[in-house]
Design a protein around this nucleic acid. Structure first.
Lengths: 136, 136
DNA sequence: CTGAATCCCCAACGATACTG
DNA sequence: CAGTATCGTTGGGGATTCAG
């Protein structure tokens, strides 16, 4: 097997990491979560959940992402079957990125997570401040 | 401020990273997701969702985690107000770790995510294999 | 039992420059 | 416009050791 992205391939290696908390072989859990944990994956999926978008448009939409990271992120999502790339052989090239059905189903959860984050932002911030005050 | 874990403190620094995809100031989103993306946070929350547990028990339950990482993980979760530590001044020391109400509300989403992961494990694996076959 | 401190590695990420 | 190549940084995480 060729090392597409070293770290990701590694993910397929370790079949340990279970918590047997009802999630025996939690390996797939961590596996997916690693993708969610990526700095940009969630942002990209969130954006593609609104509309199919071209590379350049995504680059502008996802504030702060570099060209390289957008490429890498999309590749990863595509590899996992979450994003579909439609390449039109025009000049200049056109690529339409959209969520697959699987990607759409994940979007629901990611959206819920994002909503949770916004709803609890204040609470978390307060907790952190409090914690930092108490300790050093 | 004391550097608990350098990276985590940094999370508080960058107030950029928004996608304006309906999530303006997606900073809190990434902020939370960084925690979810941690290798062990989810496993710990999942486990604590089942029962209050002591450090040593958690260490055994979350397969593969090191002592250091469990400490760091719990500190992070505690700082964010997701986990509550109850210290009993016994000998030897006893510490009860449990989810706070906030932690419990997150547990719901995390559980959903874990379920999603298990349900789509096959599909994702297949997608990866297919992708790797097509490309090199 | 709980946990802090040290050392070290490497995968993720970023900046930049180049190509079809 | 979309994508690749290269290189440097860095912080998450593991192993180990020491301490209360």
């Amino acid at each position: 097997m060729k090392a597409t992205t070293r770290g990701i391939d590694e993910m397929n290696a370790g079949v340990d990491n279970c918590v047997e908390a009802g999630y025996r072989g939690a390996f797939p859990v961590r596996n997916i979560l690693d993708r969610v944990g990526n700095k940009w994956s969630v942002m990209a999926v969130l954006r593609l959940g609104r509309r199919t978008e071209r590379f350049r448009a995504l680059l502008r939409a996802v504030d702060g992402i570099s060209q390289r990271m957008l490429t890498v992120t999309l590749r990863g999502l595509e590899r996992d079957g979450l994003v579909h790339r439609d390449v039109f052989d025009t000049l200049p090239p056109t690529v339409a990125n959209s969520l697959t059905p699987t990607g759409l189903s994940l979007l629901t959860l990611i959206t819920a997570l994002a909503d949770w984050a916004m709803q609890h932002e204040a609470a978390v911030k307060a907790a952190r401040a409090e914690y930092d005050r108490r300790n050093g």
